[in-house]
Simulated scan of single mutants.
Amino acid sequence: MTAAFTFPGQGSQAVGMGKALAEAFPQARAVFDEVDAALSQKLSALMWEGPEADLTLTANAQPALMAVSLAALRVLEAEAGLDLARDAAYVAGHSLGEYSALCAAGAFTIGDAARLLRIRGDAMQKAVPAGEGAMAALLGLEFEAAAAAAAEAAQGEVCQAANDNGGGQVVVSGSRAAVERACEIAKAKGARRALMLPVSAPFHCALMQPAADAMQEALAAIDIKAPVVPVVANVHAAAIQQPEMIRASLVAQVTGTVRWRECVAFMASHGVTTFYEVGAGKVLTGLVRRIAEGAEGVAIGTPDDVAAFKARPRG
């Protein structure tokens, strides 16, 4: 098998996402209904009608993005005969997308995934008082240089590499003043650009420890099954299938670096040549081309994308 199925993270949300799938396919509609029921909230109405500011809230964006990914996956299974156990070498997801990947591979139910992501989103938002944390994208520096800039900028505060996205794109996270210092240090080290990001909290850094504690408690109450396909975990950049290792990696992920560049490189080095991005947006598809030379990225999030997938030769 030469295909991997990947699932996007926060930032890919947009008002209207998933609506065309729900209108065209009952399997998609069923997923949105299941998520609405699990959360006792009409999240689907917020996704399709907005307002955008409410959809962007971490506690809404995380389960919403998972819902779109699983809706698209269920449609691929029904319409194109997709069987991950047969057709995928690996699954992986960027940050919250790891929950989508695990759910897709049968590690836990859609309802459990929705509830976990609501807890995760709430806990991440509450972990740091508004305005005290920040994130910034450093463009044009490789990971080691960006991580060094973050360490130099910390000066007793928290500042660390949060996302290694590949293609010379590294996101740093931590205390606002430290992140601002990291931007200046990165520019001095040759970064092409250093941009403060419009995020509501400093994700994937030590300041998120209260959220990691909340996830440890929440995940302890969930039945996790061995996924039918190995999951390439953010914090390991390697394939895992043991339920207890999955549980521990999801806790570690809250404060740890999303090693996406290494995750994609791992899959490519193990024979993956096509990366299907299932869900909203095309962020991961764009990153694939910068990480794995010669690999193909294919985004699947609309009825037209489903039709194109059905028409593709797969082997």
Rank of each mutant, 00 (worst) to 15 (best):
M135G: 06
G11Q: 09
A218M: 15
G140P: 00
A178M: 09
A101P: 04
A45V: 14
N165A: 01
A148W: 12
G286I: 01
A80K: 11
K126V: 02
K42Y: 04
E293V: 01
E157Y: 08
H204A: 02
R181E: 06
D36H: 13
A238H: 08
C103S: 12
N234G: 04
V232C: 06
A30T: 05
V278G: 04
L102V: 05
A113G: 15
V298I: 15
Y276D: 09
H94A: 00
L117P: 05
L287G: 01
E157R: 15
A130N: 09
A239R: 11
P303M: 10
F7C: 07
A137W: 02
T273Y: 03
L250E: 08
D304Y: 08
F5R: 02
G281W: 07
M124H: 03
E132W: 13
A188D: 13
Q253R: 12
M1V: 14
A226K: 12
G50Y: 09
K126Y: 06
M1K: 14
G301T: 12
D122T: 14
A4H: 09
E152C: 08
F5I: 11
Y90W: 15
D304S: 12
V91M: 08
A280R: 00
L284F: 02
A268F: 05
A201L: 03
P303G: 11
Q209T: 14
L82D: 10
Y90T: 13
C183W: 01
D87L: 15
L207V: 07
A61K: 00
T2M: 14
R314E: 11
S175W: 03
G140E: 02
A148V: 14
V158H: 12
A161L: 07
S175Q: 10
V235A: 05
M208E: 04
A178Q: 03
S44P: 09
G81N: 09
G140T: 02
R86N: 13
R29K: 10
L84Q: 11
M196N: 07
V91H: 05
A67R: 01
V235S: 04
E244F: 13
T6S: 11
L96K: 00
K282W: 04
H94Y: 05
E23R: 11
D122V: 09
E293S: 04
A24Y: 11
V31C: 13
A61Q: 02
A212S: 11
A145D: 13
H236R: 10
G256N: 10
G190I: 08
L116G: 00
F275A: 04
A191R: 02
A137Q: 01
A64Y: 06
H236M: 09
A248H: 11
R115F: 07
K42I: 02
H270L: 11
G286N: 00
V128M: 10
S249Q: 14
V306T: 03
A72G: 12
G286R: 01
N60P: 03
L46P: 06
G167W: 00
S44G: 07
A45G: 11
A59R: 02
A80Q: 13
K42L: 07
S95P: 04
L287N: 00
L195R: 09
G271W: 06
L250H: 10
A53R: 14
E34S: 15
Q10S: 03
R176G: 05
L197A: 01
E277C: 09
D83M: 11
Q160A: 11
C263P: 00
L219C: 12
A107G: 05
K189C: 07
P202V: 02
A149C: 15
A101K: 04
A188Q: 14
T2G: 15
